[in-house]
């Protein structure tokens, strides 16, 4: 601790912080590959209407003569179905692109809503303490002891089918993870002197919560958020596979897998397998990226 002016240190800008982050992130080639997969998947989902040869939402473009074509066969549309077609003559490649879209929208929406809800709940518990904290955290513990899929199943069965109902069920099943993480991080920060200084100024509660407590509790949440987006996608696929998610006319990866499941044993593997690979790639890639983000953000990581 010397009193010499800290002039040699450059002011920390968001750009230098990002470039430091990136330098650390690319230490892992696997994570970089996973990031590329994620970017490609997201781009394909966004650009689906331009990339896909067929619009699976438009029933009129489906031709029953094209049903169950093998991968690479040329259908009545005059173009090759590189991943084959399903029993209704749907082009699997197009269906996967649109399915990715639905899955990502559901995953990201459920993930971010769960982030907002869970973080608020966890912050309130950590800030107020006492009975409020005990009550909230016992409810969270109770919920975490139930399998998320069970809770989501019950909720979807109660709310009915549809995109919004599905998102609501996923949020309700997953906010508890965010609440627990936020509560842990925020309780640790809550005891630090700068929070005490803020309370003894005194600053208004919203300042203490959102300017002091939340930003310092955020790093672990970013990691949980990435992983939970992947979990939401997988959970949605499970629900759709079980027939409780989205209908096949509004394909998601889960409903596509479910759609081809009955043909698996008859040798028409492509209807289920290709959506399955797409789902696996997406979920694994997001998880790998999330893991590396956690490694980079954790200063005590082992190198």
């Amino acid at each position: 601790m010397s009193n010499s002016p800290a002039l040699s240190l450059p002011a920390e800008t968001s750009w230098t912080r990002f470039s430091n982050f990136w330098t650390d992130f690319r230490q892992s080639p696997v994570a970089v590959a996973a990031l590329i997969v994620v970017v490609v998947v997201v781009l394909m989902a966004i650009l689906a209407p331009f990339v896909a040869p067929q619009d699976p939402y438009n029933q009129e473009t489906l031709d029953l003569f094209d049903a169950r074509l093998e991968p690479g066969e040329i259908g009545s549309g005059g173009y090759a179905h590189w991943l084959g077609t399903d029993a209704a003559g749907r082009d699997i490649f197009s269906a996967i692109l649109y399915g990715l879209r639905t899955s990502l929208i559901v995953g990201v929406m459920a993930g971010s809503l769960a982030l907002v809800l869970g973080t608020s709940v966890g912050l309130i518990a950590a800030y107020y303490g006492g009975r409020i904290e005990a009550l909230i955290m016992r409810i969270i513990d109770l919920q975490l002891s139930l399998p998320a899929i069970l809770l989501a199943l019950v909720l979807v069965a109660m709310l009915g089918q549809g995109l919004m109902q599905l998102v609501a069920a996923l949020v309700a099943a997953q906010y508890a993870y965010f609440a627990r993480t936020t509560h842990g991080a925020a309780s640790a920060e809550r005891r630090k002197d700068y929070i005490e200084a803020a309370l003894s100024t005194p600053l208004p509660a919203r300042h203490v919560l959102f300017r002091h407590l939340l930003p310092n509790a955020l790093p672990p949440l970013i990691v949980v958020a990435t992983v939970q987006v992947a979990n939401s996608i997988a959970l949605e696929a499970t629900l759709s596979f079980l027939g409780l998610g989205l209908p096949i006319t509004q394909p998601s990866l889960g409903s596509l897998i479910s759609n081809g499941f009955q043909f698996l044993l008859s040798g028409r593997y492509w209807i289920s397998i290709y959506p399955g690979i797409a789902l696996m790639l997406t979920v694994v890639a997001i998880n790998l990226v999330g893991d590396q983000v956690r490694n980079v953000l954790n200063p005590r990581r082992s190198r």
Partner: peptide
């Protein structure tokens, strides 16, 4: 004014 100036300032502000 707190004892530890390393803990009493919010590191992100």
């Amino acid at each position: 004014i707190h004892q530890d100036p390393f803990a009493s300032l919010n590191p992100r502000i």
